[in-house]
């Protein structure tokens, strides 16, 4: 199948001189889930805003179902649903009123819009709260109503900008289930996230963006195999001991271990065997870690592996000034 969404060399510099997108290209296959993974400030929202016709790119082009996002904006708007990073709903209206309003603005008849609103409220388990103003909704409920609002017109292409940021783990997992069900019905989804775990769980393919550029592209297992599946964190107590630990580990692991503060992170790309190796190497050097933890690789690990710098805000700030 062809591409439902296409970004070609998108560039955008905001007034004030921040370059949010510096030549971003990707294509989303019809019926698939595509992840845009990157830290805060990477340019994810800017890309989504351009592809949903909210913002014009300085150069480059975007297409949704073959329609140009600038020249055929109306056709694009009729084909998409958008759930933004910030739940964009009317606080003063009830859940039902919000969904009905979106339906009418998508040019459904008033009655059809009402029926559709009730259907979605039920689907998202919001029927009990349907007649309460959104002011009284919890964070998780807001995200659900926001997602429901994106679905009112049954759009073939759905844009979800950090759909679970700020949610508690329970609501996050519940929302993942909802998104997976949508994909099962054939919707094409473009999703942005800061969480590798989320991209891994939901996205068929993903691009990693940093400072407005694509720095890696592939399936999440392709990316993870480049990173090592899990990571062993060794807390050494202070930076000096961490540096010594890294030096001795180097003999066995090459340059894979990295130091972050007082922690040495060792990728376990050959499985649990490596935990034992690492500990015996450290034992013989009399460098016993204070604590240790085995964890899934984080976005930070991806960034360390891909760029040599972390995904932290300090790095970003420094580059923006430069």
């Amino acid at each position: 199948m062809g591409s439902a969404v296409e970004a070609r060399d998108l560039r955008k510099t905001f007034k004030g001189g921040v370059t949010a997108l510096d030549g971003v290209s990707f294509a989303v296959e019809t019926g698939s889930v595509f992840g845009l993974l990157g830290p805060n400030g990477a340019g994810k929202t800017t890309a989504v805003r351009i592809l949903t016709t909210i913002l014009r790119p300085d150069s480059g082009s975007g297409r949704v179902l073959g329609h140009d996002v600038v020249k055929e904006a109306a056709a694009v708007r009729a084909s998409i649903g958008l759930a933004g990073q910030y739940a964009a709903v009317d606080e003063n209206l009830t859940g039902r009123e919000n969904l009905r309003m979106i339906g009418q603005l998508s040019h459904l008849k008033r009655r059809a819009a009402s029926l559709r609103a009730d259907e979605l409220l039920e689907r998202f388990e919001l029927s009990d709260a349907a007649n309460r103003p959104l002011k009284t909704y919890s964070g998780g409920m807001r995200r659900r109503i926001d997602l429901a609002a994106a679905l009112v017109d049954q759009p073939p292409v759905l844009f979800l900008d950090e759909p679970t940021t700020g949610l508690d783990p329970y609501s996050r997992i519940a929302l993942w289930g909802v998104i997976e069900a949508l994909v099962g019905e054939g919707t094409t989804v473009l999703l942005t996230t800061q969480y590798l775990e989320e991209a891994d769980r939901l996205a068929d393919r993903l691009v990693v963006v940093d400072h407005g550029r694509v720095i890696a592209e592939g399936t999440s297992s392709e990316l993870k195999s480049r990173l090592g599946a899990t990571v062993l964190d060794l807390e050494m107590g202070d930076a000096e001991r961490a540096a010594r630990a890294r030096a001795v580990l180097e003999r066995r692991f090459g340059d894979a271990p990295v130091v972050r503060g007082s922690v040495v992170a060792v990728p376990l790309d050959e499985g649990p065997r490596l935990v034992m190796d690492a500990l015996s190497v450290l034992d013989s050097a009399e460098l016993v870690p204070l604590t240790l933890a085995v964890r899934e690789p984080s976005l930070d690990d991806v960034f360390l592996a891909l760029t040599g710098h972390g995904a932290s805000e300090e790095n970003e700030g420094a580059e923006v000034v430069a």
Partner: peptide
């Protein structure tokens, strides 16, 4: 501020609506 205008701008609405 609340972002609802972003949503309106992504809908097939009249520009002056």
């Amino acid at each position: 501020q609340k972002g609802i205008i972003e949503r309106f701008r992504s809908l097939p609405m009249a520009r002056s609506g």
